[in-house]
Each structure stands twice: as structure tokens, then as C-alpha cells.
Design a protein around this nucleic acid. Sequence first.
DNA 1: CTGTTAGCGCATTCAG
DNA 2: CTGAATGCGCTAACAG
Lengths: 330, 330
Amino acid sequence: MTIYEIAREAGVSASSVSRVINNKPGVNKQMREKIQQLVEKYHYVPNEAARGLVTSNSKLVGILIADIRAQHHIRGAYHIANELARHNYFCMILNTGNSDEERTACIQLLRQRQAEAAVLMGSTFRTTAVQVAIEQFLPDTPIFMMNGFIALPNVYGVLSDERWGIADCVAMLGRKGKRSIAFFVDQPTPSSALKTEGFIRGMAALGREESGLWIYRDVEGSQNGGYETAKRLLAEHPEVDGLICSQDIIACGAMRAIQNSGRSIPADVAVIGVDNSSYAEICTPRLTSLDNMIFDSCVTIAHKLVDVLNGDSTNQRTMLLTNIVEREST
Amino acid sequence: MTIYEIAREAGVSASSVSRVINNKPGVNKQMREKIQQLVEKYHYVPNEAARGLVTSNSKLVGILIADIRAQHHIRGAYHIANELARHNYFCMILNTGNSDEERTACIQLLRQRQAEAAVLMGSTFRTTAVQVAIEQFLPDTPIFMMNGFIALPNVYGVLSDERWGIADCVAMLGRKGKRSIAFFVDQPTPSSALKTEGFIRGMAALGREESGLWIYRDVEGSQNGGYETAKRLLAEHPEVDGLICSQDIIACGAMRAIQNSGRSIPADVAVIGVDNSSYAEICTPRLTSLDNMIFDSCVTIAHKLVDVLNGDSTNQRTMLLTNIVEREST
DNA sequence: CTGTTAGCGCATTCAG
DNA sequence: CTGAATGCGCTAACAG
């Protein structure tokens, strides 16, 4: 079913049908109604590919997520998609995977599909390969990075101050009398580097030198990763009294190991996670967590996105402050 | 950048460029290489809309999910998207919302974008409105329903036997000496109806009449929903010794209320959830859960999808057996 | 092996 | 207010 078929049955030209479809003026009322009836009758839906070909707008925004199973990112996508849907934009959520080849392929796909904008969720996209891919394939497409930034004229970044946030977590543990504090951090990303830096700064404020810190790197981002690393920590440093983990899920596993060792939380060891995810509410004890403002970041991105698509301009970099949500584990 | 611009610079016609782009024969080797170099040089990417317009294939599969924040569904989408990506199909994940209008709008969107197939995740799509929308907008597009089915020639369903699964859960509690068993079920969907039926059958096998059963309906699908309902249950039926919840997350909340009342799990009250989600691993005690085989369902759907897109045929209905994963809560 | 032609479905001029 | 003509970028016949 095409506009021509509708036009023939209505006894008019395709142009008139097109005008009706797009709610444009210049069609007499009776004819408009007759066409509308036929559209209803045949459940006609315009072919967006053909329409996009002539108007060169796709009404399509791509959301790239390294792993859509990660709760915090998919929640962000949810909010952005809902907001954009209200502006008649349609989001395609792409699961990129974690390699530069995959990331590049997805960016190329956005070009192929004529995406009008893109959202890159997470600091994993802060790589040279991504920068090159953007320059090559999407040099003029507005790109919004959540918790990341790349210095290109068409890239906008909304970041949360995780460095200061983690330093703040250390300070909080310090106020509670904790001094022997460990830090678990997942695979290296720009975000985890900032968190680590925050930990080092926070500990410095407590008078600890960087060389003696208990930083466990490359912790697998799963409950088991936290569990196994915590067992190591307890063996190597039984006097530990505080623990900060770069992800809630890691903290959940770590808490289990700590409890299994006969220690109580927070009396013996206080624990803090990051993301303020639903995991923090489900584990026992409930986990104190650094809220890195994913929700607010996404709301901000959605607004900026709509602004930019409307031709307005916004500042390229925005920084959001983090916020510790205190629960039972501290 | 279009094939014409490439063609001009290469001193050939657009057809030859098209042949090279699509790896088709009929271009001499030197010319092929020259064109490939230009493609590289300008980072040319074909416009998929134009291509789709002439070939009338979009290489696009839609995945509809009522709420992408639901872990079990997004995990399913993850597997399907990955599998299809290997066959050069691209998935757009759509967050439909929970109303019939929204579901219909999304199905219309699939038509508009010429989706070659669709996956509907969850029994919430088993409504008359969806059936009508499919008949009107996608009468010839293969539709795969995960945990659902609609009797139309182009619809394929992969279901898991939740009815028998829940009955099985009841039997398991029975074997452990539990007799006063309650059931929490979320908002009515075809799936929750089946679960409820399974509970009734299971209790019948234990010699309980339907009229006296403790079935709590319309429980909010959140931790808080489980918590509040469990408080009511404990007040109304303090002698309860077993609880089955239609979702893991509900069970997590319920367990908290049970523990707060001074009861121990599973000694005083045994608890079982459904979905075998990561929540079941995180809560304390770890939750025994009915695995409704979402992973296997999605693998099955992905295979069937590829088969159907390749022109092969498969059976329209498949039933997968569920499986209780026993942990500490029973 | 190569180029010319036509047309996919639609929106947008421009005449009438 | 209306229709005819044009072209978006590409592929697929066809003819050379």
C-alpha cells in the first residue's frame, strides 16, 4: 500500500495524499476526509525509509551501551527513550560490546541508518578509536556522552564528579573512625581511573601515603568478583575496617565474604558501593552507595538532545555533583 | 558522499561502485581495488534507507519490551540481539509501556520502519489489541512471542510451562513439611494467571481446596510490594510456613518482612521466587527460584528467527519445561 | 566486464 | 486548492 494506491482510489493525486498524511494545508475539507478514511481502511502507514530519503531526516537517535545487561545504563536509556518519544523521536538501543572494533561498527551503523543524534552511555566510549570513528562517520551528528567526553565540536558530555565523590566516601568513613580502608575497582576505564584517583586523594586527606594503600584493581564486575577479592583482602589485611567498591554489585559480593569471616557490617567493616542501584536496596545489610546521578545525567542529556535537535545550542560540558546515599552498611 | 561521487572520482559508473560495495562479481580487479580505496578514503557508508527502498529489505528486527528496566527481559533481548548481529541483522529495542495504545503504536512503528521480524517479550503482549495491530500492520511479518502466543499464521510462540512449574514449587514445599503456603502474584497477565492456576493445582494435590487458599493478587512488582504484602500476610495468617512469589524481586521484599518479624528462613517460612534472576543471588538468604528458562527461550527464538528469515519453516508453538533452582531459602 | 536506464515510496517544488 | 514533474541514494535489470 502506497500513497499512489490511496490516491487512485480517492481519485486524486499522490501529492494530495501526502499533504493529508503530513497534516499540511492546501487540501479541501471533503477530500481530506475521504483520504483519511482510506488511510484508516487500509491501515496505511508511510514508509519511513522513503520519507527519510527525501527529507533526509530519520527521526532516529541511537543509544550505545557496552552491555545492556548493566542495570544503571539500561535505566538511563529508558529515561532518554521515553523523553525523546514525546518529541516523536525514536531510539534504537545498541549493545556494542566492549571492543574498539565493535564500538566503531556501531558508530558506522548509526551513519548507515542516518541517525540524527547519538548517546554513548558510559566512560568506556572515551577511547581514541571512538574519537576517530566519530570524526570519520559522524562528524556533524550531535553526540552525547554520558559520563564521558571527547573534545570534538559535535560532542557533548555530561559527567558526574566521581573523583570528588569517592574522596567524599573516604572522608565519611574517616569521620566514623575508620582508618584501614581498602578500595576495589573494576576493569580500567576513564571512570574507574577517576574513582581510584578520588580514593587516593581521600586517603591523603586522612594522612595516608599512596604507596601503602590497599587498592585491588581489575576486580570482575560481578558479585563473585567482589566475593573472591574480599577473601583475599581479609587474608592479606585482616585489620581492614572500611571498604569502598567501584560498583554496588561488587560490594554485594564483598559483604558476603566479610560476613562469612565472622565480621559484622558496619561495626567491624563499613562498606560503600557506587551506582546507587537496586542491588543496594536488596542486599543485607542495605548498602550505602555513591549516587553518580545517572538519572539526572540522562534527564540532562535528553533535554540537551531535544534542544540541539531543535537547533538551539548548549554548552558542551556539564558536570553533576555526586551524592552519598547512606544506608545500613556504614 | 554517494556512490555517484565515488563513481565520478573513480571514472566509472555508479553501478560498478554498487557492485563493489556489495561484493558482487562483474568488476575487473584493478577497478575494484581503486573503488575500494576511495571508499576507505572518504569513509563512505551506504545509505541504508535508500538501499532498503529498492531491495525492500531492512535487515532490521524489532524487539518489544514493556519495560526495559525489567532485568529478565533485557537479558533476553541481549542474547537475541547478539545472535542476530552475527547474521547481519540489527535489532531495535523498543520500550513499549504497558497500555494497549502504546503497544499498538510500537507495532505500527515496526511497519513504518519495515522491520523484517519482531520479538514480543513477555505475556503482556497477549492481548486482543496486539492481535488486531498485528493483523492490520504486520500481517505477513514473522512475529515471535516469548512466553506468549497469539493464534495467527505469522506468529510463533515460545512458552515456558509456568503452570506446572509453580505446581512443582508447591510440591517441593510440601515435601519439606510445609502446609500453610501463601502465594503472591503481580498484576494480572496471562503469565500470572497461569502461575496462579499452578498454585491452585499444586495446593489441590496437597489436599487444599481453592476457596481457602491465601492468594495475594495485584502485588506491586517491586521489593516494596513484596514487603508490604508480606506484612499483611503475617498479620492475617501468622501460621504461614511457606511462600511463593511470582517474581524474585517481590520475594526479596517479602523475605525482609518475614525476617523483621523474627521468623527465620527457611526454618519458619520457606520462600520461593520466579525468574532465577540475579536478585536471587544477592539477597540474604539466597533465594530458591523457579527458572522460567528465559535464556533458553531466547536462544530458541533467535534460532527460529534466523530460520524463518532464511525461508525455512518451524513449528509455531514450542513449550519449554521450567526448573527449580534451589538455594538457601527453602 | 561496463554503463545506461528505470524505479523503489515519498515530499516538494512549480504551474495551473 | 490541485496535479505533474523531479529527485533523494541506491540496486537491478538490460544492453553494449
